[in-house]
């Protein structure tokens, strides 16, 4: 019994990439027909063969981690999913051309906010990614994106914020009022790729000034 094409079995086959973690996701027909299984293949743009993704053959869940298979930043990839229902119907759908440099989104940075009496320090920690160089060195976002920088805002009151920015990892907002609460917000920005992370937010209070007590 030849499986016939049944496109509604399979929808929205696409990569969801965040900090270079590349997950292939799709939607199946509404759950009314259980027992549909999915098989994933991938390939490099420009290559003739499709390669089966080990671990994502005849699976029932609707996602597959292709981070390792699509990890070369200079390459472009396609992935496709074949769905086969218990009644023998099938559908195959392909992603758009994917390149993790272009498509990955950036997660908020990991930051430590340290209050002092009249200042607040903000220390941004490097962000590791699953991308490795040929000699096995694990790359951080900062190493991948040459023009990556951090943008920091300190909300002093409802009308006025202080701004700092740069590539360094340590920042200090100074000239603040002791024993006062501030809201800090730090984003990662990558201008060349027009990428910007959601903010890391820290609420922090400057220390009381005990010099005259």
């Amino acid at each position: 019994h030849m499986a016939e094409d049944s496109p509604e079995l399979l929808q929205h086959v696409k990569f969801q990439s965040s900090n270079f973690e590349n997950i292939l996701t799709w939607d199946g027909k509404p759950e009314s027909i259980p027992g549909t299984v999915y098989s994933v293949e991938y390939k490099m743009y420009g290559e003739p063969e499709w390669l089966a993704k080990v671990g994502c053959q005849q699976i029932t869940q609707k996602s597959c981690n292709l981070t390792m298979e699509t990890g070369n930043l200079t390459e472009l990839y396609y992935a496709r999913v074949t769905a086969i229902s218990s009644g023998g119907w099938s559908a195959t759908k392909m992603t758009e051309r994917f390149n993790s440099l272009q498509h990955t989104t950036i997660k908020p940075p990991d930051v430590t906010c340290v209050p002092q009496v009249r200042s607040i320090q903000m220390i941004v920690h490097p962000t590791p990614t699953p991308v490795h160089t040929t000699d096995g060195h694990q790359l951080t976002l900062e190493e991948i994106f040459q023009d990556l920088f951090y943008r920091l805002e300190l909300h002093v009151n409802h009308t006025y914020q202080m701004h700092l920015g740069g590539k360094q990892r340590e920042f200090e907002f100074s000239g603040l009022t002791p024993d006062t609460e501030f809201l800090g917000s730090i984003v990662i920005s990558v201008p060349t790729w027009s990428k910007e992370s959601a903010p890391y937010v820290c609420r922090v209070k400057t220390l009381p000034d005990r010099t005259w007590t």
Partner: peptide, 9 residues
Amino acid sequence: NIDFRILRN
């Protein structure tokens, strides 16, 4: 034609 690429590495 995704089996063929013109600007190659």
